[in-house]
Design a protein around this nucleic acid. Structure first.
Lengths: 343, 343
DNA sequence: GTCGCCGGTTTGATCGTTCAAATTGTCACC
DNA sequence: GGTGACAATTTGAACGATCAAACCGGCGAC
């Protein structure tokens, strides 16, 4: 380090002067070491260390016409799932590993124009979109304006092949949940999630349908939709439980639904919940339930890595084909007691 | 807008040419309109709109030697409280309102050198520190190197007057919780939180002590410390409840402790929890509890605004006195039933 | 002996903006 | 008519890095 004290100031020219070479040679030492004679490089490197030189980011950005930043719109923390939070964490790490930073921007003002501004001013190189909705207007809007972006969440309601995205196979996750419940001896496994029409809600419910059919279960009357809050979910679950042949287990579209389902099932005389319930998202709130609850966990680290990877491909200019990546979630099993596995 | 299509490219010179003036005049229209004749300004503004000009951020940063970014280290999402998440949200908004962006960086590598790098390269102008610990080494380290920063959380174990910070008065919050419980008729109000030695843990417990003394309650044996996880908290609460004169209510150091306490109290024959419990942080996980739980809420929006305010003062160069700001939390009351208020 | 080549290094230009100083035009005042 | 004051605008020079092209000394080939 050497200097310490002031937080600004050492330029490449000062390093060059100290090492008795030109600016370009210093630059080469850092960017293309093979072009520099070993002992020159050593001399330059010493000067860099002694002066504590760090290349100025703004100058690099200006010259290279990049910011090495990706923009992400902050979404309001909502509900029990801290999915955005965890994705943000994963994205920060993945971006950092690739030499990028994540730049957050707020919800104030219009997202479309704010985003365009960030791109046009060169503040960020690209955007990451989360919470992609059915027929999301941002996708065509950004595409039309040549704004590079990658989605977490497959585009629905528009041609997928036109965009870059990474997503988690919710249907697969719920199907694994049903498999697990069936293996524990359940024959009447209900599904509780969003009403039809919600993008990933439909996806997850389709997973339940597939699994139920595959296992030859009769469950036509065991599906319910409701708003995603605990009270509404509990009410919907109670309706299913009041039927003539009530379910003994629930696979749910989210942890919030799952908490509601368990609440509706109540506690048995043995002190344990009456229902086997599997949630989706593996949010911290379910970990602290007692007894703990199994849940489908999205591979957010992998999603973030893929998103960053796609983004870098996209920015590299190479006319890479637009592509989507589908990842499989895990089922995190947290047992307590209940029906024994059947085999 | 006009062009659309390409996301890059219109420079101030092109605007100047289009409007028939010099670059500097265009710059003045945007930065110092009073120096420009009205009809010239109008002509320039029209050219700006037609070409869709947006000033290049890297060029501005380079010339002005600022980035208008503040750096924040991402901390791992942990536990039930999404406090960092919410603070981040508030900070993004507050920074945005002041013309700054929040740049996240990951935990990979050493925080100290990573942070210094961000400053030295001019990637960020200043840092925001959260989770400030007792005798936090970052404070003197950054100060010695002239790295501007503002803390969320008062510095403990070092002279406070030497730093800029904003914090929430945890003692006040817990005292309000105790007041509330006493008003509901409780005379034996316990405290459950971190063991002594934890910075804000001690602060919050001190609030309980003050309130208990002020109300003339006898509660010397009603304080317990444990690790911050539900199971450990429940165990600690059970120990208190097993005493000869068990508490009838708990004020807690965090929502996690509060969930543990309520769990330990169990459900009464009437189907309601046996204990009155007040948490701290008002995390979403407590909102979804049934019945809901009261909790002390930190004024994060205000904290974020103050942090940004201090930061701007700090960066403005004016030798403003270093100062700390202490804010008061609110008690969010979520009633269900239980002892009637006594008045 | 001249030429071309090559690794290693330097020079000049450039990215797009803003600062500071210079320039022009207009008018009032002596 | 000359001078100073002033408003409006322009010019030149940074800011710190990198790209592209030029340069230079030494060596082998013809």
């Amino acid at each position: 380090m050497g200097r310490g004290g002031d937080a600004t100031g050492v330029t490449i020219s000062e390093v060059a002067a100290a090492a008795g070479v030109s600016r370009q040679t210093v630059s080469n030492v850092l960017k293309a070491p093979e072009r520099v004679a070993p002992e020159t490089a050593a001399r330059v490197r010493r000067a860099i260390d002694e002066l504590g030189y760090r290349p100025n980011r703004a100058a690099q950005n200006l010259r290279q016409r990049t910011s090495r930043c990706i923009g992400l719109k902050m979404v309001s923390p909502s509900g029990v799932s801290d999915l955005f939070d965890r994705f943000l964490h994963a994205l920060t790490e993945a971006a950092g590993a690739a030499g990028y930073h994540v730049l957050l921007f707020g919800a104030a003002g219009d997202e479309l124009t704010t985003s365009e501004d960030l791109i046009r001013t060169g503040t960020v190189d690209a955007l990451v979109l989360v919470d992609v909705e059915v027929g999301d207007p941002r996708l065509p809007w950004f595409t039309r304006r040549g704004i590079p972006f990658v989605c977490f969440g497959r585009p629905r309601g528009q041609a997928r092949g036109r965009f870059w995205w990474a997503d988690v196979d919710g249907a697969h996750g719920v199907a694994r949940a049903v498999d697990h419940l069936v293996a524990r001896g359940h024959r009447r496994v209900a599904y509780l999630g969003w009403p039809p029409g919600n993008g990933f809600g439909d996806d997850r419910r389709a997973g339940w349908e597939e699994a139920v059919r595959r296992h030859g279960l009769d469950a036509a009357d065991l599906v319910a939709g409701s708003a995603e809050d605990v009270a509404a979910a509990a009410a919907a679950a109670r309706t299913l439980l009041a039927g003539s042949e009530p379910p003994t287990a629930f696979a749910c579209g989210s942890d919030t639904f799952a908490v509601g389902a368990r609440l509706a099932g109540g506690i048995g005389p043995d002190g344990w919940p009456n229902l086997d319930v599997v949630g989706f998202d593996d949010s911290p709130a379910v970990m602290l339930m007692s007894p703990p609850m199994s849940s489908v966990r999205q591979p957010l680290d992998e999603v973030a890595r893929r998103v960053v990877g796609l983004l870098i491909d996209r920015l590299s200019g190479a006319e890479t084909p637009r592509e989507g990546v589908m990842l499989r979630p895990d089922l995190v099993i947290r047992e307590w007691r209940g029906p024994e596995p059947v085999h």
